[in-house]
Design a binder for these strands. Structure first.
Lengths: 179, 179
DNA sequence: ACCGGCATGTAACGGGTTACATGATTTT
DNA sequence: AAAATCATGTAACCCGTTACATGCCGGT
């Protein structure tokens, strides 16, 4: 699933500019399982426009480039639904933090503690964010994804909190409360 | 963290050929959080050899190319430890299945059920595999990673089983037991 | 005075995947 | 007879990130 398809997906939730789409990738409900940068989004929107899968209306602005508001065409919606029919590929995960935990014995205690604190914090923030999405307003699929997100974040947080000592190999390490 | 570093990581667990390393990426304990193909591994090993970070001894074989068994040099171990000191980047996740659940309302029930069954199965298999690694023989870090893996797999499986109906929007759908 | 947010875009670069080329041996 | 496993490697390609270019406005 490439950025083009993800743009269609985002636009199915409402009209948006390239800038908006980028923001949705880093702050919106997709942020957990997908990300993309300007360098891929703008060209993608251009291609989609050529193919007639999105429409574009320009809104003049003073002092900054005209806003190009994209919206999904019927053809675009069709293309998106078609993309959803393909067998999904397996999840692709790359976690440098897990690699570091895996090789914890080669690391300084201080570095390891930083990685641990940071990683735990990530999940706490992610959880907080996901929970901030009001469940009442979500359609079934999004509710399900929300539930999966909270469930797995909670599991990670709980395990990390309960097994902190295991990672630091029984050595007595001071808590890093501040920071 | 690029393939070169991951090759060093793999070799720190024992000598291996390019072919072995590939297998470890798809079957070994890394498979959950990293993957790589021949097209990246062989060139990576070549570069590492040039830089003196790995050594290579050849073993003649009949009927197939000579086996090139790589091992980590002291310099290689040093480079790997250095790589572990860098601040890890955030996890990168791409899950087409989650995108599909998110947009479940645009999908056929049959396709959706396939995606659901498949995804659930993935986690069951992953869990089974992780649990097959004997905890006694693992150093602390690997034990911790193993624990995180089981915890998050269990959470996903449980949530999916308990909320199956939610995804299918209350519609009565027959179980797909066989297949 | 400077930084962050808004807003678009391009070009260079990096990195990895896919597919190809080769070929014996074992399993189905 | 076909497919999978073992074993290496290359080249074309895809896709995406990073960095750059431009420029105003509002807040600190």
């Amino acid at each position: 699933m490439d950025v083009k398809t993800l743009c269609l997906a985002t636009l199915s939730l409402g009209d948006a500019t390239g800038y908006d789409i980028k923001k949705q990738f880093e702050e919106g409900p997709f942020s957990h399982f997908y990300q993309a940068s300007f360098g891929s989004i703008y060209p993608a929107l251009g291609t989609l426009l050529e193919k007639g899968l999105v429409a574009c209306r320009e809104e003049e602005q003073v002092g900054r480039p005209d806003k190009k508001i994209y919206s999904l065409t019927d053809a675009g919606m069709g293309a998106f639904k078609k993309a959803l029919q393909k067998k999904p590929s397996a999840d692709k995960i790359r976690s440098e933090s897990l690699v570091m935990f895996f090789f914890a014995h080669y690391m300084d205690d201080e570095d390891l503690r930083d990685v641990y604190d940071n990683y735990l914090n990530c999940f706490r923030q992610k959880l907080e964010f996901i929970e901030s999405l009001e469940p009442e307003s979500l359609p079934d699929g999004r509710l399900f994804v929300r539930g999966l997100g909270t469930a797995s974040c909670r599991a990670m947080i709980t395990y990390m909190e309960e097994n902190r000592d295991q990672l630091f190999g029984g050595k007595v390490t001071e808590q890093t409360d501040c920071q």
